[in-house]
């Protein structure tokens, strides 16, 4: 059982929120008392932030479309297929045919890696995210 301080994923306020873990499951959330934004307060989204983490609809395996259906496959298969197809399209379209959408739900580090991947590996600047939506 432990409480871990982390940052809320919902809005741009960025409240400090503790996640309560018990036997490998996250079963509660409560505000940080001294955090400069939350100051012992969360909105309703923050108080219930743990509810989606263990939802049964979570994806847990890579899926690949086979004969029209998304079918569970191994990471190796999914990654190799993706890499091959991305390389093909990149080369066929002279680096013009690929586009990448990054996310405001991903961390800074992940956004950095994704734009690095887009620019250095896919050789394009076609990367954007939903800042305007």
């Amino acid at each position: 059982m432990k409480d871990v301080l982390t940052t809320c994923v919902y809005c741009g306020c960025g409240c400090g929120v503790y996640l309560h873990e018990d036997q490998g499951r996250i079963c509660g959330a409560f505000p940080s008392r001294n955090h400069p934004v939350s100051r012992n307060n969360l909105c309703v989204k923050g108080w219930n932030i743990h509810e989606f983490i263990h939802h049964p609809a979570r994806l847990t395996e890579p899926l690949l479309r086979k004969a029209g259906h998304l079918t569970p496959v191994s990471w190796d298969e999914a990654l190799t297929y993706t890499a091959t197809r991305l390389t093909e399209i990149r080369d066929q379209t002279a680096n013009q045919g690929l586009g990448v959408l990054s996310s405001a739900k991903c961390t800074n580090e992940e956004n950095y890696l994704l734009q690095k991947f887009t620019r250095a590996v896919l050789k394009t600047n076609n990367i954007d995210q939903c800042a305007r939506l």
Binding site: T7, C8, V9, Y10, C11, G12, G14, S102, S103, A104, K105, C106, T107, N108, N111, Y112, L114, Q115, R119, N125, N126, I127, D128, Q129, C130, A131, L133
Partner: peptide, 20 residues
Amino acid sequence: RGQNNVQGACDMGALPGHFP
């Protein structure tokens, strides 16, 4: 900023015209 890490995603260069 609308979503939690929109600021960060922009800062990190997830933009068509800008590096981090």
